[in-house]
């Protein structure tokens, strides 16, 4: 009697699945091992969208002389609607109170006619300073007739990226939709 017939007769006429499942299970475990090893929990990652505006054209000399009185006033058109959040940092190798190199030492709110220091290194912790910033931003937004809706975020060149993101988070969660990043004041490297 062949093996196949013997299996069928021993199990009462049906096919004994145990003999077929074993290699199938082996292959399944190999597949499982592959997927476990290549699995990355990248769902934790998020993104912040941004747009890069084209570099502005440099001023060119007019072919005809222009009187200074004919020139348009030199003012920032967005200034009325925009708040500048400026984050100053502890310089490289320095310490200010409990803050170290690259941590925020001072956060300022600049509006059209007013500059206010929201927090500095005399505050016990950065968390306290960020809470103050949150309260201040919400206060500006909730004022009757408030038109401030956009924020320009400017960090010091030495400021660590994580603190820029912390301040961004506070601004966004305070209810401001339009937040743009401003270039830090640093020397542009010479072109090679």
């Amino acid at each position: 009697m062949s093996k196949r017939k013997r299996i069928a007769s021993e199990s009462g006429g049906g096919v004994n699945l145990n003999y077929i499942i074993t290699p199938f299970l082996d292959m399944s475990f190999q597949l499982l091992a592959f997927f476990i090893m290549t699995y990355h929990p990248s769902a934790l990652e998020g993104h912040i969208d941004g747009k890069l505006v084209p570099p502005t054209e440099t001023a060119t000399k007019s072919p005809t002389p222009v009187l200074p009185t004919d020139l348009p006033p030199d003012s920032d058109p967005d200034a009325a609607e925009t708040i500048l959040v400026q984050v100053k940092s502890v310089p490289k190798g320095g310490v200010e109170g409990s803050r170290h190199d690259g941590e925020p030492s001072q956060i300022l709110l600049k509006q059209l006619q007013e500059t206010k220091v929201v927090t500095d290194s005399s505050d016990p912790s950065l968390e306290d300073g960020l809470k103050k910033l949150d309260a201040e931003l919400k206060h500006i937004l909730n004022q009757p007739g408030a038109i401030k809706s956009a924020i320009k975020l400017e960090g010091d060149g030495n400021l660590r990226h994580q603190y820029v993101m912390r301040v961004y988070d506070v601004c966004k969660l305070a209810g401001y939709k339009n937040i743009s990043f401003v270039a830090p004041k640093f020397e542009r490297p010479k072109t090679d």
Partner: peptide
């Protein structure tokens, strides 16, 4: 998270001058 804001800007500045208009900053 520990790199400096100026370094982030230098990369973005190069991208801007290379003609890119859209960018994303990845965070957790």
């Amino acid at each position: 998270r520990n790199c400096r804001y100026s370094e982030v800007w230098q990369v973005l500045d190069s991208c801007q001058r290379a003609g890119y208009r859209r960018w994303q900053l990845r965070v957790m």
